[in-house]
Simulated assay, not measured.
Amino acid sequence: MTKKCVAVILSGCGVYDGSEVHESSAVMVHLSRAGAEVQLYAPNVKQMHVVNHLTGQPTEEARNVLVESGRIARGNVKDLAELKINDWDALIIPGGFGVAKNLSNWAVKGKDCSVEGTVETVIKKFHATKKPIGLCCISPVLAAKLIPGCELTVGCDTECEKWPYAKTAEALKELGCQHVNKQVNEIHIDKKNKLVTTSAFMCNAPIHEIYDGIEEMVKEVLKLV
């Protein structure tokens, strides 16, 4: 059987200013278990800012998204500008605030955001060539911005009165997308656009359930190849 080749985009290292480490690890574990060939990529740009993960407060440091992504990738990460669409069968983007700060400026502008240039180009190429895209946590906002009318989930607003990401779901709807309520261990498949989404840490759930949801996302992305 021919190996399925999957590109994974990181946005730095650490939930508050980069890729969420557990989500990134879960993606890699499940791709490895499935026997996929994987390459990690990141845009070679400055981070929006650097956050002290003990205090949650920004610092005066300046860091680079590609360099910081190397921490998760064990050094094996490439500049996203080097990605060649014909080399890959699918794309997956883990979450973390880096998606909303470095891969886009969603954290500042919400639905009026722009997507970082290389990220926009890659997502549009995968979509145009009908190759599946897997997104978890906050990363579905990238598809919402770039793929009009797509179907996505960032969680389930009917399960928790104080669900903190209801505004995100509303913003997706305002962009013309359909938000579908899903539990943390569930996924939503937009068959028309070949998008697979799961909420991960957008939900307040045990980490093993987040890994379970990401496993389902990875499985379905590979099935769509």
Rank of each mutant, 00 (worst) to 15 (best):
T153G: 12
E23C: 07
H49W: 06
N105V: 09
H208A: 11
M217W: 04
K182D: 03
S104C: 05
K219R: 14
K145A: 06
R33K: 15
K223I: 04
D212K: 15
E120H: 09
G213W: 13
V15E: 14
N204S: 15
M48R: 10
E68R: 10
K173F: 00
L54G: 01
L40R: 02
C137D: 10
V51S: 05
A100P: 04
S25G: 05
P43D: 03
L175W: 08
G134P: 03
A34F: 06
N52C: 08
R74K: 12
A200M: 07
A107W: 13
N64R: 04
V218K: 04
R33V: 14
V21S: 12
K130W: 03
K130N: 15
G98T: 06
L175Y: 03
V51E: 01
L31I: 11
A169I: 09
N105G: 08
L66P: 01
A73P: 02
I133E: 01
K219Q: 13
G14D: 07
V141R: 01
T168F: 14
L222K: 05
V141D: 03
H22Y: 07
D87N: 12
K194I: 06
I187T: 15
Q57I: 09
L175S: 07
A26N: 11
V108A: 14
G213Q: 08
Q57R: 10
E209I: 06
Y211H: 15
C177M: 01
E170F: 05
S104T: 10
I92S: 00
A26P: 11
C156F: 13
D17G: 12
V122P: 02
K46Y: 00
S24R: 08
N204Q: 14
L10S: 10
S24G: 12
S25I: 15
E61A: 09
K145N: 10
K145F: 10
R71W: 04
I85P: 00
G98C: 04
Y41T: 11
C177L: 04
K192A: 14
V65L: 06
V6C: 12
G95W: 07
R63T: 02
V27I: 15
S19H: 05
L146G: 12
K111S: 14
E220H: 15
V50P: 04
K173I: 13
V6T: 13
N105A: 09
E215F: 06
S11H: 09
L31Y: 10
V221C: 02
V115F: 10
R74I: 02
G70S: 07
L172Q: 07
V221E: 07
S104F: 02
L91W: 01
Q183Y: 12
A26T: 09
H179I: 06
C136W: 05
A36D: 06
A171Y: 01
V119F: 03
E68H: 04
K101T: 01
N193R: 05
N64I: 00
E159R: 15
V51M: 10
K167D: 14
I187W: 11
